[in-house]
Design a protein around this nucleic acid. Sequence first.
DNA 1: CGCGCGTTTGATAATTATCAAGTGCCGTGG
DNA 2: CCACGGCACTTGATAATTATCAAACGCGCG
Lengths: 263, 263
Amino acid sequence: MERPLVSNEVTRLGPDAKFHHAGLRRGLTPSTLRKLDAIARLRVFPRDSVVVPQGGALEYVGNVVRGVLRMERLLADGRSQIVGLLVPSDMFGRVFSDRSDYSIEAATEVTLCCFERHAFESLVRSCPDLEHAVLLAVLDELDAAREWITLRAGATVAARLATYLLMLCRRWPHQTSELTGDQQRIIVNVPIARNDLALYLGTTVESISRAVQGFSRDGLISIRTPLRFEITDLPALIALSENEEFDAAALLTDLRAGCGGSF
Amino acid sequence: MERPLVSNEVTRLGPDAKFHHAGLRRGLTPSTLRKLDAIARLRVFPRDSVVVPQGGALEYVGNVVRGVLRMERLLADGRSQIVGLLVPSDMFGRVFSDRSDYSIEAATEVTLCCFERHAFESLVRSCPDLEHAVLLAVLDELDAAREWITLRAGATVAARLATYLLMLCRRWPHQTSELTGDQQRIIVNVPIARNDLALYLGTTVESISRAVQGFSRDGLISIRTPLRFEITDLPALIALSENEEFDAAALLTDLRAGCGGSF
DNA sequence: CGCGCGTTTGATAATTATCAAGTGCCGTGG
DNA sequence: CCACGGCACTTGATAATTATCAAACGCGCG
């Protein structure tokens, strides 16, 4: 499904204004910022292109400016699995390591802010404020990994899908979610297609489809387009996710509050 | 199963000599080391005690000296899930965050080297070399999380169990593994009981048991004790794990090579 | 000896993967 | 303008895997 992905909310961000390595820039001194900008290069990758090959040399690190990256691991039997998604402001690649044991690919068309790894690393070593920023970024990544783990905790496909939708709303409210006109309901824009969703949730395309249609039948969601759902019964969705950490009121107020997201 | 856990290889380490915050100490200046030691306190926790409660205040960070910690998340329906295990030299807790969304509990009796979080954080802020060490530690944690993800990639319980056993051998060769007298086969000491193993591999005690017994029937392993297996067909175990990244020869040579582990 | 705990084993039901076919949509090209 | 092919998604039937419930086993310990 090409079109909805390109025009998806997640990718419909302003021209780099806010998310241009926002995750890193925060808290840096002007001097460090200047040095950082000096080695930064914006690059655009088409959908499904490989940014970093699995097991390959890791030449670049950087952060996502626009679009979605998937970290994908290929298994011996040909199956593959998505071990994480990266959205704008997330860092990709790994500092202080020269190999990646998973490949990084473009789940949509992406714009990346790239730094040549060695140049970036020496900058990190010479600028303690940048090192601190990197530490925070890596801690975020760690949280994301733990969140992924939560995702897989769900026993059934339905539970995992519910958790995923709720995670989208909470972690990236203004990139993936909107409110209906009356501000009563949330509309979620799933940033990836069924195929990737299946790999991400550890199941198959068919099971994902059945779960989505099941939600629709049960009145939990209303399918606007295959990647755009209106959540019509938020409490039920939360109950289904088997996760106590979601709060309907908090999700809604977070969205109503202009731009109080996590960035 | 109390006894085997206490006398398990993983917990049978020398008195703090090597693993006393080894992960952090590496590369630190004597000055920083002195400051670090000044705020360090060794504490012992009995099995199943809660070191950090889920959702609770995060007062301490530190690293494991002896024993195994489990990071456990409780779900709304009462089930729980292990999101990671921490073995000697691993850091626990999270710097620069005051809540933990999972609890940290002792999977065996553990000895921890604790730092009061705020004191540790200010030390981190004032010592760039310590910050660098923390960054490396967090990167290791991130790798561990990704490895966990690999663990769950296996479609069947058998595949996940095989992957887990191989991961033990590769990541902590000298804490969990030994060689048979003729140096031909590996003996793995599983650091946790069936119950935790089930939570870790995302299945039930019964399925774990069936998988273990199945391995034994098929000649892949020989069960010495419930937590101590001799791997009798390493290549088959690797094939079963559906993971291309394990290498029988490498695992064996790694173990034969005195102490060339990852520490 | 009996109790508790961890493990094992068995039977059944629920969940999901797999295989197979069908639908709707869009862009291409006659 | 419409037929065609490709792609993403949906739907259906069947088989494999696993969770669940239930009970038994082995073993250390009081």
